[in-house]
């Protein structure tokens, strides 16, 4: 049966782990959140997961190869002609990373927060709020990265990756997914009801359509360009497009810095918010 010495083996292990400096915020065990997510994923609805991946592929077919026939080659942003499909493929790759990340970081997190009560329980173990935040965000980014790998597997054989830099599109998409997962969970943690959650979708659709996805942002007047270029998806589209079309310049570093900041801000706000919600 269960034996209770004064301090048991388990308590000793748990306590040793808990003695890390800063353990009340981060115990260094975000990985166990991924383990949990894998258990949960086994029984989740695969159709929903697959549909998120299929969406950008459908856009590529309809716009890239359908409407692309009517458009012909266009200018890639640095003066070289490129097929319309090759122009929008990087944008759709960035979008698919975003969709994958947001699927988990928004609706799933919202349900766990308000109905599953999963986080309260985690925080009454010796996990800290940052373990929870980082773990959930990491799981979301894994989905985002998986979507983008899947998309790449379709795009590359079609000859839409024109140079070696294009291989870096996968790590870039992972970075983009990380950024969106991080900011997505932070925003979700402030949402109180379904109506507010719908605002997220309301914002996402125009961002998807107008972030240089289907046409270059240079068509806008100067002042609109400034706004659009500040949007995270536009940054992501530019980053992946630069890599896949081999337009490597200083801007690439700028885009990377943008996502690093996005990750840091999202992670900080999520951690603070989890603490405020469940540890007061």
């Amino acid at each position: 049966m269960i034996t209770h010495a004064l301090i048991t083996q388990a308590v000793a292990i748990a306590e040793k782990r808990a003695k890390r400096p800063g353990a009340s915020v981060y115990s260094g065990r975000a990985m166990v959140m991924i383990e949990r997510a894998l258990y949960a994923a086994k029984s989740s609805n695969w159709l929903i997961i697959v549909s998120g991946f299929v969406e950008p592929v459908l856009y590529l077919m309809a716009f890239g190869f359908g409407i692309g026939q009517l458009i012909g080659d266009i200018e890639d942003g640095s003066g070289n002609p490129v097929s319309y499909a090759a122009f929008i493929a990087p944008a759709l790759l960035a979008t698919s990373a975003m969709n994958g990340a947001l699927y988990d970081a928004t609706w799933n997190v919202f349900f766990k927060m308000h109905f599953g009560k999963v986080y309260q329980v985690m925080l009454s173990s010796s996990l800290g709020p940052m373990d929870v935040a980082l773990g959930e965000i990491s799981w979301a980014l894994i989905r985002g990265a998986t979507y983008s790998v899947g998309f790449m597997a379709i795009v590359a054989p079609l000859g839409l990756v024109t140079n070696a830099w294009g291989l870096l599109a996968i790590p870039a998409a992972t970075l983009i997914a990380f950024g969106f997962a991080s900011i997505g969970m932070a925003i979700t943690s402030y949402m109180k009801n379904f109506q507010q959650m719908n605002w997220v979708n309301f914002f996402l659709l125009p961002m998807f359509l107008f972030s240089g996805t289907f046409f270059p942002v240079s068509v806008y007047p100067e002042w609109i360009q400034v706004i659009v270029k500040a949007l995270p998806l536009c940054q992501g589209v530019d980053l992946v497009r630069s890599l896949m079309l081999g337009i490597i310049d200083i801007n690439v570093l700028g885009h990377i810095a943008y996502f690093v900041v996005m990750i840091a801000v999202g992670l900080t706000f999520t951690t603070v918010r989890l603490k405020a919600l469940f540890m007061r």
């Binding site: 166990v32 258990y39 029984s43 599953g116 329980v121």
Partner: peptide, 26 residues
């Protein structure tokens, strides 16, 4: 806790294992 707060997405044994993992138990 009040109202159990079990992990409803997980099976019975998975609930126990994951909770143990939160404490860093092997």
């Amino acid at each position: 806790p009040q109202k159990d707060m079990l992990d409803r997405e997980l099976k019975v044994w998975e609930n126990l294992v994951t909770y143990g993992r939160y404490f860093g138990l092997p």
